[in-house]
């Protein structure tokens, strides 16, 4: 195993720990807002992980997945928080 490969594995482990901490907050989170914040961050970490995997394998097939995720990831958060803030007069 070369140093380059070992560094890629280290990057993957760091991404895994970040995603695991986000999942921990989704499970624990006292309010639904904490869970939505953690879900947003989990999707962002997922996009970054797709990019890291593309750099490692040297292909570009995940680009469209990253684009679609960046476009639609916020819809769930907006929908949930819209119903959470009940005092909203509009």
């Amino acid at each position: 195993m070369t140093i380059l490969q070992a560094s890629f594995i280290a990057v993957g482990v760091v991404f895994f720990v970040a995603a695991a901490l986000a999942v921990f907050r989704i499970v624990r989170g006292p309010s639904i807002l904490d869970r939505m914040i953690a879900t947003d961050m989990l999707v962002a970490t997922l996009i970054c992980t797709f990019a890291a995997e593309m750099v490692y394998s040297g292909h570009t097939r995940s680009l469209t997945i990253m684009l679609i995720l960046a476009m639609v990831a916020f819809i769930a958060t907006v929908a949930v928080t819209r119903y959470v803030s009940k005092q909203d007069p509009s």
């Binding site: 380059l4 560094s7 890629f8 280290a10 990057v11 760091v14 991404f15 720990v17 970040a18 995603a19 695991a20 901490l21 986000a22 921990f24 907050r25 914040i37 953690a38 961050m41 962002a44 970490t45 970054c48 990019a51 890291a52 750099v55």
Partner: peptide, 18 residues
Amino acid sequence: LVFLALGALLSLAAGVGL
């Protein structure tokens, strides 16, 4: 690889903060 490590560390910081 350096840029990937920077991105990964930022993700880790966000996870720890969460």
